[in-house]
Amino acid sequence: MLAKRIIPCLDVDAGRVVKGVKFVDIRDAGDPVEVARRYNSEGADEITFLDITASSDDRETIVHVVEQVASEVFIPLTVGGGIRTTEDVRRMLNAGADKVAINTAAVFNPEFVKEATSRFGSQCIVVAIDAKRTSAEGEPAKWEIFTHGGRKPTGLDAIEWARKMVEYGAGEILLTSMDRDGTKIGFDLELTRAISDAVTVPVIASGGVGNLQHLVDGVAQGGADAVLAASIFHFAEYSIEEAKRFMADQGVEVRL
């Protein structure tokens, strides 16, 4: 049976891992290559890099990061953040990324997703969706797509948007709940389940993981095919291996 995937996510700013990574046995916790190596040895199923570099001068650094990681870590690598053109996609794939995540650019120019998937194949195009609940308590659940870190509403319904992106060729959906991101109270399971049921392609749940039970819930209740988390792994609260053992004990199929 296909295993559910555990994906650690690294925020990279000007070539350095930010948001603090604490491992006792690594020399430089800000070095994405060292962190990626560590996650790989713990059994990560994939690694995602989110480039949050603000200055365009420093944007080239993520390419070097990917190049270095790809020459020694042989699991799938995804890069997101600032992917706006097919040229951006090509650069990342040439550097050694296996997939790129397209977020804001998809919202402003959905045709870009079509272009990218027809040129590079659906298997390497992940559409990242940032969704926020807009229905009031007691109303039927409804989520909307937000951009700019959850500050700007777009008026797009999250479920319809996910369906449209798959129709445009997205090979996978990376779904982040903006309500839960950073809260550590668990995924928005209702949202995860709604999107997972609505599309035929795999869904990666993201936003809100605070403990290992949350990972299990994302899969068992949310119907996610993969779970992505940052801080619980960065601060070495749990190792990826621990997370997988816990999930296996709860009956989730994982790669051990």
Binding site: M1, L2, Q123, T200, P202, D225
Partner: peptide
């Protein structure tokens, strides 16, 4: 569908035996 009745996603993406 899988054992839990969830539809298997296509593409198959991930680690299998």
């Amino acid at each position: 569908r899988d054992a839990q009745g969830l539809r298997l996603k296509i593409p198959q993406m991930g680690w299998n035996r």
